[in-house]
Amino acid sequence: MSSSDDDDERIPFIQRPEWSDVRPVPQDDGPHPIVPIAYHDDFRETMDYFRAVYLADERSRRALDLTTEAIGMNPANYTVWHFRRLVLEALNVDLHEERDFIDEIAVRNSKNYQIWHHRRWVAEKLGPQAADKELEFTMMILALDAKNYHAWSHRQWVLQSLGGWEKELDYCCKLLEDDIFNNSAWNQRYFVITRSPLLGGLQAMRDSEVSYTVEAILANPQNESPWRYLRGLYKGDTDLLVSDNQVSDVCLKVLKTNHNYIFALSLLLDLLCYGFQPSHELKRVVQFLGKTETDSSDANLATTICSILETVDPMRSNYWAWRKNNLPSQVC
């Protein structure tokens, strides 16, 4: 990575013989610019030459090199990227080379929309044979930041457009092993089990996924991600969510441990609102918590849950109070 050395050695375009025939086109900021930017001389000069080749529509090797320099300084400029694509096409450049170029600049610009868009353009042209390389590339970026939104978007696009689903569930498992709190990895897991053409869809995967998720919840009941994932496994099927004992069981198990039970109570409240009939044991456990945390003991179970949440979840106590006052009439 010698970019800073390159900067030091940069020769201005005006001194480069190969550019002597080009008249730079200065930026016209007009008489009264608002929020003017204090451009560096190098930046200004590079963009002046870019404007010149862009206006002349010069699709040449030196124009391509110029866009490389301009992108190095100004990677968000979509006009430069657009022109680069025109030049790449005109010169019929080997897009594998272009992919190497993106590899190089993407690491230090991994949150730049334009670079990811360009990457997609290249991968799309290369077709399904590029899938492995693209998946590898996103793995490399995700190894540096496992929640990089752009990398995940690109990865989902690759899977859907170019394929490569075979090892995706294993990859999700590995990332969740590294960090079970990584919500991006949970989201990807949901993406895989609902959309992979190899796994048979949500219904086919539900049982094994519920087991996996319950285990994750019991290990870290304060982790929001698996709780949301668990509900997601019953998306569009509230009846099954209510009737599947595995759901109420995991709530009960967490409540019995007597700590980190906010998400368990929250899910239980929703189950009750959907018509769930709680067991005696579940009632007893909640009422025990109610006696420790609040004064209410004579109320119904849903009311008691709201009262506990009002106390133990201070960021949302107004919300739980509102829920308490707006419970469905038939709730237990």
Binding site: P36, I37, H40
Partner: peptide, 12 residues
């Protein structure tokens, strides 16, 4: 006047 760090956002 925006400092030169804003160069990379000039397109916006």
């Amino acid at each position: 006047r925006l400092p030169s760090d804003f160069e990379t956002q000039e397109i916006n």
